[in-house]
Write a protein that binds this DNA or RNA. Structure first.
Lengths: 352, 352
DNA sequence: TTGTAAGCGTTATCAC
DNA sequence: GTGATAACGCTTACAA
């Protein structure tokens, strides 16, 4: 690999001039610039990105920092978002650095390393916990970041984030099945260690009280992590006396809903929106949701939109746009400066 | 961000000692090391990855370098593979850098930049073309890489790759529908600018000749890029005189098959394995394949396996393992040193 | 066992 | 317009 000296020697100038020519400075003779450019081309010289960032220059790279858990729900969502994010980065001429840790204790450490490494200009923090030390960490370090999700205390901390309104989404689902005349509404969720799980569950509780339905603890099962647990939970729901069995199952995400549907089908129960059938709803509208049978009725938080908003906001933050960074998503509610809540949309299909 | 000087000052030693202590060198007093480690911890000091790589040290990062096209088939596959790769990297304590270019002319340039940037230790090159200048490019630069897919001249070039045996996969599908008694077999494909499309198509032609079926050019449609084109193609197939219409449609990938099924269904035609129904087969077994209706019969090239093999091989190459890098996949056929062909597996579901 | 000093490949600050 | 030269933060001979 040729370096700046090689080019300088070829061109018979100093490295300073080469640097200036290549970086489009104005104070360099047009002729010299042309010559240097040509030589750089010939030598197929590319400035070392690493040396550049050592000077504090932009890296044109952002990091995606998820908190990887081992849930059934976590994996499929992760894959989807990484892919979409990577694709979205192209538009901004950014590269995406994905680095996570195997164990959850290490995530903070890994994050600190990435943030302090000088390898990225900004970070997309994902899978926020209600109390998430990573927000303070990044704020301390002073690196631009945008969170996907929010902590409980987002108002005091006032860091930039994009979140999907989980409570609203679940409310919509509850309202929808309520209007079908269903009253015994079960709620299945993964662990509550992540913010969105909590918000979504709150949505369930809020809407129950809104409709004057008493909460039945037997209809709420949380901390579901793998297939078997879900199957067992569904089984248990339908071991209740018949008039206490749920008429609808609100699942906190699509992956859960998928498993619920499968369990129900295995048990010989019909899933759907008709009376007598069990209604099942999901959340996220992952690509497979439309293909399930019955096709999943769910709350869509278009991942494309969400990722688009995340990138838009992060890019604005990185530019130090003192101006309120506006994002172009139309369904966004502004909670604070650079804090947006995206409103999910009810997608009615067959499962409810 | 504290740097190595801060730690050195705190500890009352030179930066050399700090460096050595942190990198686990043996020639440093245990006491001093302890002290330095403690101080580094307190200061939450992390060595700058950038400065480190400037010294030619490992970055523990690999790049994924796809060739992004604008097909309907390209996008979903890309998302899947990036996600799985990112997850797979965790096992090896690697970060994944995804950087592509918007336009296809730029891919080589972008690649050169990444490869020469010093930011990554190795590269996974994807979406190979039958003649792909990127192989020579990376070989020239001398950076470790593994290709996902292969060029036509892989034997001369002898670079490491993992490929899925596209011909074999399609042969399996053809044989399967042939055994159902079907003889008029259409083949739908995306553009032939990518190796796997060519190999898969070859598989189609080989198996036709193997079964003594004459090729009917009207049953082969290539260069399909978007929904509408696929719909039109299917329409045209069934505008043929009835006894010339296809009894099976072999699609070169799942995304294509999905659209074929939808088109067929819209036209009121039944898809399935029974006589009278049109059989449709896919290739890849993307996550949605199992959920389609009818569920897609396809050739599975488990992306997990493929990515696993890619990473395994790349890590071996990066370690300079002169020894033949063995991969642990059991269905792998060795074409040459560090060149493996993965044999896809027939997944029989409902669509054929 | 520890320290000094020379890189690594850029960009930025001064002079000229 | 152009060129020395000093950073940037680290690793690694080479000394001590």
């Amino acid at each position: 690999m040729p370096n700046i000296f090689d080019v300088a020697k070829q061109a018979g100038v100093s490295i300073t001039t080469v640097s200036r020519a290549l970086n489009g400075y104005s104070d360099v003779n047009e002729k010299t610039r042309k010559r240097i450019l040509k030589i750089a081309e010939e030598l197929s010289y590319y400035p070392s990105a690493v040396a550049r960032s050592l000077q504090g220059k932009k890296t044109n790279t952002i990091a995606f920092a998820p908190w990887l858990r081992d849930h059934i729900e976590s994996r499929s969502f992760f894959k989807e978002i990484v892919g979409v994010l990577a694709l979205g980065c192209l538009k901004y001429d950014l590269s995406l650095l994905v680095s996570g840790a195997d164990s959850s204790q290490e995530t903070s450490e890994t994050l600190r390393e990435v943030a302090g490494s000088g390898r990225v200009d900004g970070i997309i923090l994902s899978d926020l916990k209600p109390e998430d030390e990573r927000v303070a960490l990044l704020t301390d370090i002073g690196i631009p970041f945008v969170a996907f999700g929010r902590t409980a205390n987002y108002q005091e901390l006032s860091y930039p984030f994009i979140d999907v309104d989980g409570a609203a989404g679940i409310c919509t689902m509850v309202e929808y099945v309520y209007n079908q005349g269903r009253r015994r509404l079960a709620y299945l969720s993964g662990p509550f260690n992540t913010s969105y799980s909590v918000y979504r569950f709150n949505g369930y509780r809020e809407s129950l009280s809104k409709f004057g339905i008493a909460e039945d603890p037997r209809l709420v099962v949380a901390d579901l992590q793998e297939q078997n647990q879900i199957k067992q939970a569904v089984n248990r729901l339908f071991s209740l006396p018949e008039h206490q069995q749920p008429e609808a199952i609100i699942a906190s995400n699509d992956m859960l809903a998928l498993n619920v549907i499968n369990s129900l089908t295995e048990m010989g129960r019909e899933v759907g929106s008709k009376p007598g059938q069990t209604a099942v709803t999901g959340f996220d509208d992952l690509p497979f949701a439309a293909f399930l049978r019955p096709a999943l009725t769910t709350a869509r938080q278009s991942i494309e939109d969400t990722c688009g908003a995340l990138l838009e906001l992060l890019v604005a933050v990185m530019r130090q746009d003192g101006a309120e960074a506006k994002i172009s998503q139309t369904n966004a509610l502004m909670l604070g400066p650079k804090q947006y809540l995206l409103r999910p949309e009810l997608v009615i299909r067959e499962s409810a």
